[in-house]
Design a protein around this nucleic acid. Structure first.
Length: 869
DNA sequence: GATTTTACCGTCT
DNA sequence: AAGACGGTA
């Protein structure tokens, strides 16, 4: 992998999966509002899934079964006495099996969700496109959206234009991305689009609808997938991420949806979060897709709320038996399928001790797969760890009622010979048909001291963000990277070794030279390093062969056909009431403006050939047409369009099952294709490694990986330094203006205490607000709590000023890192370095020219970029 | 006394 | 190293 932007990551998320499974198994439920409900003891049971017909009637997940029935008499609750999710697990596996054909790098995130790193598949497709062996089919892009584009046709069209003019956006690219990433950036859009061909396979082969997100990393893929659903997919183009993050609520980011997200918001002053979010907003998230097909543990649990508390020994045994039975079944099945055995089991339980809920868990080795021993183990563990197990004077009443029970097993080990072990297991099974002995000696009690260790918010944050920054597979780097060092590397001083900053400067210097050398050259000239890019190759080749001409024509065809399809589809999908997607509606206007269309029955899908050449449809078709004719490049394409398209035969293999099988044919061993046994195909893992001279981490020994890694250090140093410097200065200047003392410390929210301090609510806290806290443009009438930001003139609450300033720092940092106006500034900045730059008053929009100078003699940011020391 | 269950991960000990 | 426990989705 050359660049972080070469990766293509897909998140596939099954729509109301449990409902779909029920609908598939029981056809009478199809096309009717349906909810899946588990347990029935109270108010009709708890709803665990609601299909879209039922959602349209207002049924939500928070309701009880009865409530749902009231709202929607048509509802067909699926009630069972004991939650049985195995059928959903099986169905999830069926889906994952389809997905796995696209890549070995499949990470099952849950029963109905999986990440796919399809980089290699995309690489192949890119080649196939050049040789004409692959073309996207229009129906693969039905219900596909691209963030920032009104419809997918426009996105395709844009890509088409770039075929003709590969460097059309290069000026912008060079401002926004690292030099080393430019080749990847140029191909980014087409690569993501190719990822769109995966989703259809799920529907065709399993019958299930799913939604998908396509982006360059996991975080963004997950985010994108939530933007259009159900039965839709969303591409998040690299260039759109920054704008998207401007209005994105922090809590929408995976991992920040809970308490931790709130902490992050409150503790925003901390540099890691800023750096991290900053990176994410540039499309950078290095967390690897970790191949995992099967879960590492198998567990089941049950709550016993209120009067369902388990108070008697017999009841306890009963439920332990139920849980054990399920565990056992699943273990046996897992053994047959996966040739592995769990060696460890954990029992978890919550007791009512003097009105307090006390949670405990104890574990033991698991020797046999049979229900009775599992029950025995579990019971023994509970006894051994409960101070007084039975109420004194009774032999059947528990001293502490149990409110929750769970058993889980794990630590799987592969078994040498499946056949032998299977027989052995059945033999054991037959031999053990005795009852559980309840009369085991109670072990010396252990006192349960529910200590509440205080982990600092800082350390939590550090580690959270370190995960995303480290990138490579965790197992590989965990032991080698000390997040502490990694993230808090002190501002670099030129050490004995050539520091990375030195190298960085040299690199930039070289880049500057190259660019200035190229200055004045016609923008159409090809920079040397780009000679071998896909697009330039394409352009070369298309002059030689007709087949290649048809490629661009295909893309254009695609755009037009999509318009035709979308126009012919009825707009029957109205405003999405799905709570998972409501963020989408407000936040991503441009996407919502798209023309969602229902998926067509596959028989009704228009074939590539059958579509009329020109279909005049109201809005979107016109758009494409206008765009097509609005410039000369596209007239060229229009000519090409008249060439005969590829034959059906030429088109078919590329996306047919057969073709995908061929992709996998190199590794036909089914067992080996299981992710648990598969070697991850990350090239970086196989490369020789070098040590980072800053943090000691092992980095793949290729220029770009090294650079990427060092970029992180660099950004972090800059972030840290700048933020403290600039903040210090602002605070000083502020104190001159206002005699107010330091802003009041934010009160931390205490659970249940009722007072919710003055902190902003996370869910409505956009990334932008995250940086800048609601600047007011009008001067506050008489509010001494407000003051004017010297940077942007906005009026900001005193206590929000530090964070507001962080925003400016982040923006400045961004511009610096993006190397904006690097060339023009180099000379001027050379002069400034001798005298610290004073913060200048500036108009809004000119933020980029003020970079804080250090108060302690350190270099300014700008100086990092200047030619010499 | 009711948002259930399941699984993974990180931290502390 | 392994166990306990909480957080997140």
């Amino acid at each position: 992998m050359q660049s972080k932007y070469d990766r293509v990551v897909l998140l596939v998320d099954m729509d109301c999966f449990f409902c779909q499974v029920e609908e598939k198994q029981q056809p009478e439920y199809r096309n009717r509002p349906l909810a899946v409900v588990q347990y029935n003891p109270w108010r009709g049971g708890g709803i665990i899934a609601v299909n879209y017909a039922a959602r349209a009637k207002g049924v939500t997940r928070h309701m009880r079964g009865d409530e749902a029935k009231d709202l929607c008499p048509d509802i067909v609750p699926n009630i069972r006495e004991k939650a049985d999710t195995s059928k959903y697990r099986d169905a999830g596996k069926e889906v994952a099996n389809v997905l796995q054909r696209f890549t070995q790098l499949l990470e099952r995130a849950s029963v109905d969700e999986a990440y796919l790193d399809i980089t290699e598949t995309v690489n192949l497709r890119m080649q196939q496109m050049q040789s004409g062996a692959f073309a996207l089919k229009p129906q693969e892009l039905v219900n596909t959206f691209a963030v920032g584009y009104p419809n997918i046709g426009d996105y395709v069209n844009k890509i088409t234009n770039r075929f003709a003019n590969p460097y059309v956006d290069d000026e912008r690219f060079q401002m926004s991305y690292d030099q080393n990433d430019l080749p990847a950036v140029r191909q980014s859009d087409i690569r993501l689009l190719i990822g769109a061909s995966v989703r259809l396979a799920v529907k065709e082969e399993t019958g299930y609808d799913c939604s998908a997100g396509i982006a360059h990393n996991k975080i963004l893929a997950k985010l994108a997938a939530g933007m259009n659903k159900p039965n839709k997919q969303t591409i998040l183009p690299l260039a759109e991420t920054a704008a998207l993050f401007d209005s994105l609520p922090v809590g929408k980011i995976k991992g920040l949806g809970g308490k931790f997200g709130e902490v992050v918001c409150e503790t925003l002053g901390i540099k890691w979060s800023v750096t991290w979010l900053f990176n994410i907003s540039r499309g950078i998230d290095l967390e690897a897709v970790t191949p995992r097909f099967y879960s590492k543990s198998i567990g089941c649990c049950k709550k016993f709320p209120g009067r369902n508390n388990i108070t008697g020994l017999k009841t306890l045994q009963h439920w332990l038996g139920e849980l054990s039975s399920e565990i056992n079944d699943r273990l046996e099945k897992d053994f047959i399928e996966n040739n592995r055995k769990a060696k460890h089991m954990v029992v978890q339980y919550v007791q009512d001790i003097d009105g307090e809920e006390v949670a405990s868990s104890r574990s033991t080795a698991l020797k046999d797969y049979d229900q009775e021993s599992i029950v025995k183990y579990a019971l023994d563990l509970i006894k051994a760890n409960t101070k007084t197990f039975l109420r004194s004077g009774s032999d059947s009443v528990l001293n502490n009622a149990i409110k929750f029970l769970g058993i889980s097993v794990g630590k799987f080990e592969t078994v040498s010979n499946a056949q032998n072990k299977l027989q052995e297991m059945f033999a054991n099974q037959a031999a053990k048909k005795r009852r559980v002995s309840v009369e085991e000696a109670v072990q010396p009690p252990k006192v349960q001291v529910p200590t509440k260790p205080k982990q600092t918010e800082e350390s939590k944050m550090k580690n959270f963000f370190a995960n995303y920054l480290q990138g490579a597979k965790k197992e590989d780097t965990k032991s080698e990277v000390n997040p502490e060092e990694h993230l808090t590397a002190a501002p670099t001083k030129a050490g004995p070794k050539k520091s990375f900053v030195e190298e960085y400067k040299q690199k930039l210097h070289a880049a500057t030279k190259t660019e200035s050398a190229a200055e004045g050259t016609a923008p159409t000239s090809t920079p040397p390093e780009l000679k071998e890019s896909f697009f330039s190759q394409y352009l070369k080749q298309q002059k030689e062969t007709r087949r290649h001409e048809s490629e661009a024509a295909d893309m254009l065809n695609l755009a037009e056909e999509l318009d035709a399809i979308e126009a012919s589809n009825t707009k029957d999908f109205d405003a999405d009431t799905d709570e998972e997607t409501d963020l989408t509606k407000n936040t991503y206007k441009s996407v919502a403006n798209g023309t969602p269309s229902t998926s067509k029955n596959s028989k009704e899908k228009p074939s590539f050939k059958d579509l009329p050449e020109k279909q005049t449809t109201p809005s979107s078709a016109t758009t494409v047409k206008e765009l097509s004719e609005s410039n000369n490049e596209n007239m060229e394409h229009s000519d090409r369009l008249r060439l005969p398209p590829l034959t059906e035969e030429e088109l078919l293999p590329s996306t047919s099952k057969r073709k995908f099988d061929e992709l996998d044919s190199s590794d036909k061993n089914y067992k080996q294709s299981y992710a648990e046994f598969a070697v991850p195909e990350l090239r970086t893992d196989l490369l020789p490694m070098v040590k980072c001279d800053q943090c000691g981490a092992s980095i793949p020994d290729d220029v770009r990986s090294l650079q990427t890694h060092r970029d992180h250090h660099f950004a972090q140093e800059l972030s840290q330094q700048l933020r403290s410097n600039e903040r210090e200065e602002r605070m000083q200047s502020r104190q001159k203006v206002s005699p107010k003392p330091t802003p009041p410390k934010k009160v931390k929210k205490t659970a249940g205490s009722g007072t919710v301090a003055n902190t902003t609510v996370r869910s409505t806290n956009s990334i932008t607000k995250f940086f800048s806290t609601k600047p007011t443009q009008e001067p506050p009438s008489s509010d001494s709590q407000m003051q004017q930001c010297t940077e942007c003139k906005a009026y900001v609450k005193n206590e929000d000023m530090p964070e507001h300033l962080d925003y400016h720092v982040a923006r400045n940092l961004q511009r610096e890192l993006n190397q904006q106006d690097l060339r023009t500034r180099t000379a001027a900045l050379g002069k400034e370095k001798t005298s610290p730059v004073q913060p200048k008053k500036q108009k809004q929009g000119q933020l980029n020219s003020t970079i804080a100078a250090s108060s302690n003699g350190n270099k300014t940011i700008a100086q990092f970029f200047s030619q010499r020391n």
